[in-house]
Computed example of a mutant assay.
Amino acid sequence: MKTKQLRAIHRDLGYFYVGLIISFAFSGILMNHRSTWHPDKYTTEIKEIQVQLPENKSDISDTFVENLANSLHIDDKLKRHMVRRGALRLMFNNTEVEIDVKTGKGEIISFIKTPFISQTMILHKTNSNWWIYYSDIFGISLIIIAVTGILLINKGKFSFKNRGWKLALAGLVFPIVFLLCFL
C-alpha cells in the first residue's frame, strides 16, 4: 500500500474517531479510580434506618422489597436487589439501600448522577448489542490507526525499522510485566 493511501486511512479514521477516542480515554481514566470514589454519581443524603427483615432469606421476595421501599418512602425505580455478605442491598436509579440482615440496621444513600461524567462512563458499562459491535469496529479501527501510523514513516532515523520498533517493544514490556506479576 502506498504512503499516500496509508496517510489517508490513518487521517480519516483518526478524524472520524477523535470524539470517541477522547470520550473513552476520559471515562477510562475515571473508571480506573472507581474503587476510590464514584465519579459517575455524588451523594446528596445518607439516612440511617432500622427495619424488620424476615428471618428466612427466601422470604425476601420482589413483593417484600417493593413494600419495604414504599415504607421507607423511596420514590425511585428499583433496578435490582440481593442478599450478599450478610446485607440486603437494594439498588434504585438514584438511591441505594443497605441493611444488615441480622440487626436490621442500615442506611439509605441518595445520589445524583454527575453530569457528563456519568454519561461518558456508560460507554464502558453498556451491554447494548449495537454498541458492542460499534465498539468492536472502533477497536479494529484503533489497530488500523496504530499500524498505519507505524508504516507512515518508513525512511530515515525515525522510521519504525530504525527506531520505532524499540519504542513499540518498550511499550509492550510494561503491560506484559504487569500481567505476569500482578494478575
Results as ranks from 00 to 15, higher is better:
Phe16Ala: 11
Leu6Pro: 08
Leu88Arg: 01
Lys102Asn: 12
Ile46His: 10
Arg11Asn: 15
Thr44Cys: 00
Met121Lys: 03
Lys155Asp: 06
Gly164Asn: 00
Phe174Pro: 08
Val177Ser: 04
Ala146Val: 13
Leu90Ala: 05
Ile176Ala: 06
Ser23Val: 15
Ile29Ser: 07
Leu123Gly: 00
Leu20Pro: 06
Gln119Gly: 05
Glu96Asp: 06
Ile144Lys: 00
Asp75Cys: 08
Asn127Gln: 07
Asp40Ile: 10
Arg11Thr: 15
Arg89Met: 11
Leu180Gly: 06
Thr120Val: 12
Thr36Val: 15
Met1Tyr: 15
Met1Cys: 13
Gly139Ala: 06
Lys102Val: 13
Ile108Thr: 03
Glu66Lys: 13
Leu183Tyr: 07
Gly139Ile: 09
Ser159Ile: 00
Ser35Arg: 08
Phe116Leu: 05
Glu48Phe: 11
Lys125Glu: 06
Lys4Pro: 00
Glu55Gly: 13
Tyr134Thr: 09
Trp37Pro: 00
Thr95Val: 04
Pro39Gln: 02
His38Val: 08
Gly171Glu: 07
Lys41Ala: 13
Gly86Glu: 03
Gly164Thr: 01
Arg80Glu: 12
Ser118His: 00
Gly86Asn: 02
Thr95Leu: 02
Leu30Ser: 04
Ser128Glu: 09
Leu20Tyr: 02
Asn93Arg: 09
Phe92Gln: 04
Arg89His: 10
Phe16Ser: 10
Asp75Pro: 13
Trp165Asn: 04
Leu30Phe: 01
Gly139His: 03
Asn93Trp: 10
Leu30Thr: 02
Val65Trp: 03
Glu66Thr: 14
Pro39Val: 00
His81Asn: 05
Gly171Ile: 10
Leu172Pro: 04
Gly106Asn: 08
Ser128His: 11
Ile140Gln: 02
Ala168Val: 09
Ile112Cys: 04
Gly149Asp: 02
Lys105Met: 13
Arg34Trp: 07
Trp130Ala: 03
His124Ser: 01
Ile74Leu: 08
Phe158Val: 10
Tyr134Leu: 12
Asp136Val: 09
Asp12Ser: 13
Gly106Val: 04
Ile99Pro: 14
